[in-house]
Computed example of a mutant assay.
Amino acid sequence: MRHDAPPALCPTLPLRFPPPLGGTAGTSFKPAHLPAILAEPPRRGFFEVHAENYMGAGGPPHRQLEAIRKDHPLSIHGVCMSIGGPQPLDRDHLARFRNLVARYQPSLVSEHLAWSTHDTTYFNDLLPLPYTAATLARVCDHIDQVQSAIRRPILLENPSTYVAFRDSTMSETDFLRAIVSRTGCGLLLDVNNVFVSAVNHGFSPQRYLADVPLAAVGEIHLAGHSVQTDDDGAPLLIDSHDGPVADDVWALYAGLIAQHGPVPTLIEWDGNIPDWPVLQAEAAAAQAILDRHAKAPAPEIRHAAA
Results as ranks from 00 to 15, higher is better:
residue 2 R to P: 08
residue 9 L to A: 13
residue 10 C to E: 14
residue 12 T to R: 03
residue 15 L to I: 11
residue 16 R to V: 13
residue 19 P to T: 12
residue 26 G to T: 04
residue 27 T to W: 02
residue 28 S to F: 05
residue 29 F to M: 11
residue 31 P to F: 08
residue 42 P to K: 05
residue 43 R to E: 05
residue 43 R to P: 00
residue 44 R to L: 06
residue 46 F to Y: 14
residue 47 F to Y: 15
residue 50 H to P: 03
residue 52 E to C: 07
residue 58 G to F: 11
residue 73 P to Y: 13
residue 79 V to Q: 10
residue 80 C to F: 13
residue 87 Q to N: 07
residue 88 P to L: 03
residue 90 D to R: 07
residue 91 R to Y: 01
residue 92 D to E: 10
residue 92 D to M: 00
residue 94 L to R: 02
residue 97 F to L: 09
residue 99 N to V: 01
residue 100 L to Q: 03
residue 101 V to E: 00
residue 101 V to P: 02
residue 107 S to R: 04
residue 112 H to F: 01
residue 112 H to D: 00
residue 113 L to H: 00
residue 114 A to G: 00
residue 120 T to K: 10
residue 121 T to V: 14
residue 122 Y to K: 05
residue 122 Y to A: 06
residue 125 D to P: 01
residue 125 D to K: 03
residue 128 P to I: 12
residue 128 P to S: 11
residue 131 Y to S: 04
residue 131 Y to Q: 09
residue 137 A to N: 11
residue 139 V to A: 10
residue 141 D to E: 15
residue 142 H to V: 13
residue 152 R to N: 13
residue 156 L to C: 12
residue 157 E to S: 12
residue 159 P to C: 13
residue 168 S to I: 13
residue 169 T to G: 05
residue 175 F to N: 08
residue 176 L to Q: 14
residue 177 R to A: 15
residue 179 I to D: 07
residue 186 G to A: 11
residue 188 L to R: 10
residue 190 D to V: 06
residue 190 D to K: 06
residue 198 A to S: 09
residue 199 V to G: 06
residue 199 V to I: 14
residue 200 N to W: 03
residue 201 H to I: 08
residue 205 P to H: 01
residue 208 Y to G: 00
residue 210 A to N: 03
residue 211 D to G: 00
residue 216 A to H: 05
residue 217 V to G: 10
residue 220 I to C: 08
residue 223 A to Y: 02
residue 229 T to K: 01
residue 230 D to G: 01
residue 236 L to C: 04
residue 239 D to M: 02
residue 240 S to Y: 01
residue 240 S to T: 05
residue 241 H to W: 01
residue 242 D to A: 03
residue 243 G to M: 00
residue 251 A to S: 04
residue 251 A to K: 02
residue 255 G to S: 08
residue 258 A to N: 03
residue 260 H to K: 13
residue 262 P to W: 05
residue 262 P to H: 10
residue 264 P to E: 12
residue 266 L to N: 11
residue 269 W to T: 06
residue 269 W to Q: 07
residue 279 L to N: 10
residue 279 L to D: 11
residue 280 Q to A: 14
residue 284 A to Y: 09
residue 286 A to R: 07
residue 286 A to W: 05
residue 291 D to P: 09
residue 296 A to N: 11
residue 301 I to T: 15
residue 301 I to R: 15
residue 306 A to R: 15
